[in-house]
């Protein structure tokens, strides 16, 4: 199992156990994590599954594809470590990963 911790805008945290091979978005939805809207169901076309990956984990979550970067332009305020979490595949070496959920997905 891969442990993923979501930090909400109010500072509260929730750690879930996810199966390797799932996307972080699928894992979040399965556990009902608030704020991961994911309207397009993981097709990298809605931009509503945005998270901010904690600095120490960014090397392991990898970098965003060109399509993902183009999608992220929908958000007015850009932030380091931002990713669309439907594009992050969970693997064992990601256990313990921490991401922050934005206040809004728009």
């Amino acid at each position: 199992m891969v442990k993923v911790t979501f930090v909400q805008p109010d500072g509260s945290e929730e750690t879930i156990d996810a199966a390797p091979g799932q996307s972080m978005m699928e894992a979040a939805q399965a556990s009902g994590i608030r704020g991961i809207v994911a309207d397009c169901g993981g097709n990298c076309s809605c931009g509503t599954c945005r998270v901010f990956v904690a600095p120490e984990w960014r090397a392991r979550t990898g970098t965003a594809s060109e399509l993902e970067l183009d999608m992220l332009e929908m958000h007015e305020e850009r932030q380091d470590g931002e990713r669309l979490c439907c594009q992050i595949t969970l693997a064992d070496d990601l256990t313990g990963v921490r991401v922050a959920v934005p206040k809004s997905q728009f």
Partner: peptide, 18 residues
Amino acid sequence: IDPATRPIPFSLGKHMCL
């Protein structure tokens, strides 16, 4: 906008408005 009730004018899922 509450994330749990985000309006859905452009549909949902893989056919969400391109």
